[in-house]
Design a protein around this nucleic acid. Structure first.
Lengths: 118, 118
DNA sequence: ACAACGTACAACCATATGGTTGTACGTTGT
DNA sequence: ACAACGTACAACCATATGGTTGTACGTTGT
């Protein structure tokens, strides 16, 4: 029953969990680049780079716009800020700022309700 | 030739890219918990939870200490701050604060030097 | 017109990942 | 002493992932 937020977070972190993708993200944050312009920088096929770009795009970390036969990719800085916000939430749990942790975590509980089978 | 830093970042993001692991991390950030205490909360085997804890531990997001027959896990907030720092770097690229992007990205270049075939 | 370019996507492959059950072994409480 | 508990880890399995090559098709420049 993974929530929508969970799936979004999974996609964010998974997209970031690859050196090549983080590198691509840096480039497109610095400015627009076509997929093939990006591909030139990596020791792998164009198709592989295209897949990496697609992963970043699905996660919302990058967006593309057509320009003739090229697809120009640029980084979505707002998405990065969303990820930062997720980390801040974790830090807030640590700080104890998030009081009702029970509630925060409740939805992850198994079928059984509060009482366990002791 | 993925650098040490790259492997560290891969481990961080990969560890975070799973809903169960993020949930475990929240719990251990709020306070120490034994592995079996954690396992009670999830609809999967103890072994599966143990593996998730191990992934978080290898990434440095959590540490364990023995106490009798229990292993008490607690969240490493400093590691989370390291991840935040990685994201800030990306944001800084976007802001143009990181000037010499060429240099920043240089190590990812393929075998061929600056000049491409053409 | 048409070759070269940029992209998309299918089919395929080896390996990693997230899950399982079973076994082993130290710790604890009665 | 010894059963129950907490943990670790091996063996296994299905699926996801990151890579490949090949094909198709619209765009562009001469």
């Amino acid at each position: 029953m993974t929530s929508d937020e969970d799936r979004r977070a999974d996609a964010f972190f998974h997209a970031l969990a690859d050196t090549t993708r983080r590198d691509i993200l840096r480039r497109v944050l610095a400015g627009e680049h076509s997929v093939s312009a990006l591909a030139e920088h990596y020791p792998m096929s164009f198709a592989a780079v295209q897949k990496h770009v697609a992963v970043l795009e699905r996660a919302g970390l990058l967006s593309k716009r057509r320009s003739g036969r090229e697809q120009l990719a640029s980084g979505e800085v707002e998405a990065i800020r969303s990820v930062t916000a997720l980390l801040r939430e974790l830090e807030d749990v640590w700080r104890g700022r998030i009081g009702r942790i029970e509630e925060l975590l409740a939805d992850t509980e198994p079928g059984t309700d509060t009482e366990k089978e002791t």
